[in-house]
Structure formats: C-alpha cells, structure tokens
C-alpha cells in the first residue's frame, strides 16, 4: 500500500515536492512556510541568519533606487564575486618568482574557464574601487553621514582604504612588467615620506626592492589578512546601519 502511494507520488512531481516540504528533514532546515502574508514575510526575514541583518519593515523612501542607487549593496556584491573567483584562482596560483607569471599563462591558456575567472576577478576589482568611491559620494551628497551615523562614516573611510589596499596588493600578483613597476612606483611614494617612510617601505617590500619577499607579503595580505580585516569592518558597518536605521525615514 505504502509502496504504491510512493510510486503514485513519483508520477506526480507536485505531490512529491509537497510531501518533501512536509517532511521532518525539510522543516528542520526551512522553518517557515514560503512567505505569502505579512506575518510569514516578517518571519522569513527575522528567522534567517542572512536576512536578519535587515529590518522587517522599512520606509519606501529609504529604498528608492534613485535615492541610494544600491551602491553599498553592489560594493558588497563585488566583494562576494571577488571572494568566489579569488578562491578559484588560488587553486592555480603559486606566489613564487618567476613561477607566478607561468601560472598566469597556464591559467589563461590551459585551465578551463581560467581566463574567464581571471577577467571577472579583475573587472570586479576595478568595479569595487569605483562603486565604493561612488557610495562614499552618495552618502555625502544625501547628508546620510549626519548624527547618529558619524562613526559609520569613519568605518566607511576605513573600508575605502582597505578596498584600495586590496586592489593594490592584488595588482602585484601576476608578476608581469605592468604589476612589478606599478608596485615599485607605489611603494617608492611611501618610501619618500620623512622619518618612518623608509621603514614602512621595507616592511611592505621585505627587501630594498620589489622581489620574492614582496610577492609573498602582498599575496598573504591580499588573500587573507586584508579580506579578514575588511569583513570585520564590514560587519561593524552593516551593524551600525541596522542599529541607526536607513538614512531616509524611520
């Protein structure tokens, strides 16, 4: 009898799906029904670790596209795309002189979708620098930095600096002429600062000129230290937005 019922369900995918959503397994993972009314919609936002950072209700003015242009969210999306493509690139990349450059050629020439992953990583990185900067401008021109959001402005500027540093440290990794000399020019600027400049430059390069020590330092900063630091400040940034409310209305 039960077997026959089971077979009948197989013939009707809709019933099978319904039985699945009624099962203990499904309900232990997805606790709320698909949101169809005010209550279940609120529960869906509150009950999810990924969504609960957002309020359940908000003023319509605060989420108008022509108000925020979604720039903060798009910056975060770029960060996610960069993390994903970055992890895939790490599978093929060894930060060693001159092997790193050979890895780049292999990645572009013989790894499936290697060139695509690299391109996406690069364009998303440029995109993130631009969009983070534009977000900083949007927040300024809408007066969204005003109390009680002063501290979040500071956190935002720190995030801007971290974005620059992430992009800059990533710039060296292909180990071609372009990256080598760009980083030489960039770090020479730091080195010309009076008092601590030379020391900071040596700390960054691990040497007097850009070389193997620099590559491993920039690589470590790029793939772990700076992303962690960025995530930390990002959490504070999001949390403060949640606590202070969206800047228009409420």
């Amino acid at each position: 009898m039960q077997i026959r019922n089971g077979l009948r369900m197989l013939a009707h995918p809709g019933q099978l799906y319904e039985a699945f959503t009624r099962s203990q397994l499904y309900r232990s993972v997805i606790r709320n029904p698909w949101p169809t009314n005010a209550r279940t919609r609120a529960l869906a936002v509150m009950g999810s670790v990924f969504l609960h950072l957002q309020p359940t209700r908000t003023r319509p003015e605060a989420i108008k596209i022509t108000y925020t242009w979604g720039l903060g969210g798009i910056s975060f999306l770029f960060f996610l795309i960069l993390t994903l493509t970055g992890v895939l690139l790490m599978f093929y990349y060894v930060p060693q002189v001159p092997l790193a450059y050979q890895n780049m050629l292999d990645l572009q020439g013989s790894v499936s979708f290697g060139q695509l992953m690299r391109n996406m990583h690069r364009w998303a990185a440029h995109g993130m620098v631009i969009v983070v900067f534009l977000h900083m401008c949007r927040v300024f021109y809408t007066g969204s930095y005003r109390p009680p959001r002063e501290f979040n402005r500071i956190v935002g500027v720190i995030l801007l600096v971290l974005t620059f540093l992430l992009s800059f440290t990533g710039y060296l990794l292909p180990w071609d002429q372009l990256s080598y000399w760009a980083v030489t020019v960039g770090t020479n600027m730091v080195g010309s600062t009076p008092f601590l400049g030379g020391l900071v430059q040596f700390l960054l390069l691990g040497d007097k000129t850009v070389g193997q020590n620099t590559l491993i330092r920039f690589y470590t900063l790029h793939v772990i230290a700076l992303p962690l630091l960025l995530s930390l400040f990002l959490s504070v940034h999001f949390w403060r937005i949640r606590k202070d409310g969206f800047s228009r209305g409420l």
Binding site: V129, Y171, P174, D176, W181, V185
Partner: peptide
C-alpha cells in the same frame, strides 16, 4: 581580457612606469 604584460624584469624600467589607475 585582463592585461598581462611580459615577465617582470627589474633591469628593464618601462617608460612611463605608472601606478594602478586609482593612484
């Protein structure tokens, strides 16, 4: 495609040497 130049060569300074665009 993202640009990829020749292997880094500390002996050969390109003219001009430029930082990334945002710097």
């Amino acid at each position: 495609n993202g640009p990829l130049d020749q292997l880094a060569n500390p002996e050969k300074t390109p003219n001009p040497s430029k930082a990334p665009w945002y710097f």
